[in-house]
Design a protein around this nucleic acid. Structure first.
Lengths: 249, 249
DNA sequence: TGGTGGCGTTCCACTCAGCGGTACGCTCTT
DNA sequence: AAGAGCGTACCGCTGAGTGGAACGCCACCA
């Protein structure tokens, strides 16, 4: 069922036509990606510009700062982010490696924050970006604290092999998840991107079972070993967890 | 001219009905704020939920994570933010006070980043939030490097008196702006919020005149003095400026 | 130099998506 | 039990939205 016979559908189609990598798209490209009629795309895009969701440049259209602002009003992620920031800062300062804050959405991780210095490893993750759960430390640790069925859904589904090290055997992956629950941290060793290692710990709800989010520290093979940072990550996540709990009543 | 006889206009009205402070709004409240017919608001809000721009909760609607993600694809602010992060980190680490990155939009500042630790002063600024230019350090320094007419437009317009210390005399303000150009930094002393002091420096384009953004360090009256941090802020802003310049060819 | 293809823009008559008034059912409070 | 406030559902009218067609404008190439 196509939902692009409503104006809103068309507008969304245009906005979503912008991939994570695209900065500016010409009208013709939007037409190609959305399948809209040229006239229609022209008008809708014009309306979006009028409403400050798109910017018009010489070379085409671009997601605007208005959208940026609007997105940052999203309450759930925003309050989590604001409360988490000080803990992420501490963690960064202690490790001087790239620090992530992420939440799970289905079989993917959405990154709410990524902070790093000048020497940070070149990672594909970006604030607001997504990665599969099964090949990232944050993903694994969140999966480990997810409901039975949700976990099973991912384990039985097809698992993308992103690198030669990606764990795609359901049995091994499940064992890693169980170990993550036991130890309170999950690891990733070049499973999403060659040359990158990562430790993550869950930010648990007061029930101590389910996870709201997860925090990780990531670094490059060579100078970086994840194990020594396990405690720091665990501590940061736990501290954030109790801050959230305290606040929630 | 009301632009809410287009569907998109109505949708935007609903999205913009969410103020910076609102987390969840019931349908009735949306109706009140937007002036839409109840039936219409109900349907449009439903469509927005369907398109993942709103979340439905027991108590009403909420800006969704989908919007958060979409907003972070806005290319201009995103790349600026990513490039700036390491410099902001360094600055935070050196000062351990709240660090801001902001751009100017008309007579207001939009904050792209705010990083701080556990002891950060309670400030009204938020990532993605806005403040007037004339009573913030970032605002002043950006105004100082803006075009003549734009600067004049703000100076001649009415200036909100946010605190007893807010500078609303156009003459004094203009002198502060000139000094900011000379010295490369602008100060704010409890002009936007009682108890807060701030230093800001501009991130200049290669032309050395106009500013892309500005960086600031803020702290509370008492333990914090802005002057000693002027050099650090200036250095961070300059370093980011040359990084941008290098990248732009 | 003239042809060609891709692009953004404009126009316009048709039509169905969207409209909003009305009515209903639920849950609180009084 | 009556009322107020809320979310939801219905439905006939209509103009906002549609998309095909046509236009003018480069940039590229033969």
């Amino acid at each position: 069922m196509e939902d692009s016979n409503t104006v809103l559908g068309k507008a969304m189609a245009i906005l979503r036509a912008f991939g994570p990598a695209d900065s500016v798209l010409p009208l013709a490209e939007l037409v190609r990606r959305t399948g809209l009629a040229k006239g229609t795309a022209h008008r809708v895009a014009g309306d979006l510009v009028h409403h400050r969701l798109l910017d018009r440049t010489d070379h085409g259209y671009r997601l605007s700062g208005g959208l940026f602002e609007l997105g940052l009003r999203a309450s759930a992620e925003r309050t989590l982010l604001e409360l988490a920031m000080p803990f992420l800062q501490d963690l960064y300062e202690r490790t001087h490696e790239t620090v992530h804050l992420g939440v799970r959405e289905g079989h993917e991780v959405v990154y709410l924050a990524k902070i790093g210095g000048h020497r940070q490893a070149r990672a594909p993750s970006r604030t607001g970006g997504r990665m599969p759960t099964h090949c990232t430390a944050i993903g694994k640790v969140l999966l480990a604290h997810a409901g039975e069925e949700e976990q099973a859904a991912v384990l039985t589904g097809p698992l993308e092999r992103r690198t030669p090290h990606t764990v795609i055997a359901p049995g091994l992956l499940r064992r890693q998840l169980m170990k993550a629950v036991e130890t309170g941290v999950a690891y990733e060793r070049e499973e999403s991107t060659p040359g990158l290692l990562c430790v993550a710990a869950p930010v648990l709800r007061p029930d101590g079972q389910t996870a709201v989010a997860a925090i990780s520290v990531m670094g490059p093979v060579g100078r970086f070993r994840p194990e020594p940072h396990a405690n720091a990550v665990r501590a940061a996540a736990a501290a954030l967890g109790s801050t959230l709990a305290r606040r929630h009543r």
